[in-house]
Measured scan of single mutants.
Amino acid sequence: KVMEIKLIKGPKGLGFSIAGGVGNQHIPGDNSIYVTKIIEGGAAHKDGRLQIGDKILAVNSVGLEDVMHEDAVAALKNTYDVVYLKVAKP
């Protein structure tokens, strides 16, 4: 199931950690970017929809399929206060 989640960045950013990407696979044979941690009190935690194990398909208009881990981190960092995440639920 794919959904779009709109998050408003807090003082600590979006409030979640990711793993995965080309050269840094979270699941062997899979280059996808996965949510590995939700920080308590952060934007994602308060919103409640993003969960550990969700796959991040895109940030705003930037696709995160088959990208390097660093590029995924940069895509999440290089955002304004309002961030749209395209997410696939497991």
Rank of each mutant, 00 (worst) to 15 (best):
G48N: 10
Y80E: 09
Y34N: 02
S17W: 11
I8Q: 12
A72F: 04
P90Y: 15
V35T: 03
A75S: 12
G10I: 04
K1Y: 03
T79P: 14
V82N: 13
D71Y: 08
K6D: 08
L7Y: 05
L57R: 05
A43L: 07
A58M: 10
S17E: 07
A44W: 01
A43C: 10
E4I: 15
A19D: 13
L57S: 07
G42T: 07
I38R: 01
V35N: 01
A75R: 09
G48C: 07
G41F: 06
A44E: 01
G29S: 08
G10C: 12
K86V: 07
A58H: 07
H69M: 08
L76M: 12
P11M: 07
G13L: 03
V73T: 10
Y80K: 12
K46G: 10
K1Q: 03
P11N: 11
L64I: 15
G21D: 02
A75E: 11
N31P: 11
I8T: 14
I56G: 00
E70S: 15
I27P: 05
V87Q: 00
K9I: 15
R49A: 13
A43N: 12
E70F: 13
V2N: 15
R49H: 11
E70Q: 14
A72E: 01
V2Q: 05
D71T: 11
L85M: 09
V83Q: 03
D54R: 00
E4Y: 14
V35Y: 01
D81N: 12
L85H: 01
N31D: 15
A43W: 03
G29W: 04
I38V: 13
I33F: 12
I18L: 06
A72W: 03
D54T: 06
L57G: 03
N31E: 09
V62W: 09
I27K: 13
G20N: 02
V2F: 15
N78P: 08
E70G: 12
L14G: 02
S61V: 05
T36S: 10
L7D: 02
V87W: 01
V59D: 01
K86A: 07
V82L: 12
E70Y: 11
G53M: 08
A43F: 03
E40A: 12
S17C: 15
L14N: 03
G20T: 02
P11S: 09
Q51E: 15
G21L: 01
A74H: 13
H45S: 15
L57F: 05
G63P: 11
G42C: 14
D71V: 10
D71K: 15
Y80C: 10
A88C: 12
A72I: 04
I18H: 04
K55L: 08
I39T: 13
K86F: 05
L57P: 00
G41A: 09
N31Y: 03
L50I: 15
P28F: 04
K6R: 08
H69R: 11
G53Q: 05
K12Y: 05
Q25H: 07
G63A: 14
L57A: 09
M3N: 12
A58L: 07
L50E: 00
V22G: 06
A58P: 00
Y80G: 06
L85T: 01
A75C: 09
V59N: 00
M68N: 13
A74S: 12
E70M: 13
H45L: 05
K37W: 06
L50R: 00
I18F: 08
I27Q: 14
G41M: 11
V83C: 12
T79H: 11
S32R: 05
K37G: 11
G48Q: 09
P11K: 07
K6M: 07
P11Q: 08
Y34H: 04
K1I: 05
I52T: 14
P90R: 06
K9P: 08
I38C: 03
G13E: 05
N78H: 14
V35C: 13
L7P: 01
S32L: 03
